[in-house]
Amino acid sequence: MSNKESLPMVRIEKLRKSFGSHVVLRDVSLDVRAGEVLVIIGASGSGKSTLLRCINMMEVPERGRIFVDGQPMGQHKDDGSFTVFPDRVLNEKRAQIGMVFQSFNLFAHLTVLDNITIGPVTVKKTPPAEARELAMALLEKVGLAEKADSYPSRLSGGQQQRVAIARALAMKPKLMLFDEPTSALDPELVGDVLATMKQLAEEGMTMIVVTHEMGFAREVADRVLFFHQGDMLEEGTPEAIFSNPRHQRTQDFLRRVLPAPGAPCRPAPAPTAYIGKAAC
């Protein structure tokens, strides 16, 4: 991770997005270094999902510039306005960015294995045998090799989310976007998913993670960004944000999501899992 300092993996310049008259992103500018884990926190409705969805063009920004690995994600006009690339170009760019959703969104009619191979086979024209091998290796990695032939409806939420991570990784992405990956999970299933994400971070994946898991942010994030009403209000190391927030709003937010000092801890996490849960 030495020469990567020069060129950020993600560069966002003055990104603006509205829905009707409601401005959801107010000229957001942001760099994410290669290999960096950026955690975004903030109240519901502050525009965190919209920011992630603009990065891979699931939402089309109004103005601003976005670069992923130095490549523009849209046609940036001189006057600051933004137009999307034609589908063919856009699909190639999206294939390099993995996205993990709150609701997993596994393909319900495909087995776990086919969920993972369909991307490489369809989009990258990887030979099926090779794609299967890759998929099995990824399933091995997320600890679900024995579920290869199951349908998603047969898996727990935590298992589904780990398959969804494997599905995204099968595209060999340069960047992974996580939109509240554990928010839909029962508490006892959160740990396994966070452990998978932590492993990914340790392998050097560039990750932007929207989450309310403050324990994860504290332990895994290189940088934490507090989002408020469509713009970042404060950013810093986890230590700085959690122990020493400068803004009143950040303090208020953290007071709401972190357990009060002396409050009882959440139940112990699942056995195989990740330990740095919550601020207990």
Binding site: M58, R94, F104, N105, T122, V123
Partner: peptide
């Protein structure tokens, strides 16, 4: 569910591929 389309498009599948395969 719309999430199925989102997931397909996010891995780079085209509109046509998404329709046909998902």
């Amino acid at each position: 569910p719309p999430g199925q389309v989102e997931a397909a498009r996010s891995i780079g599948m085209s509109y046509g591929e998404t329709m046909r395969k998902i």
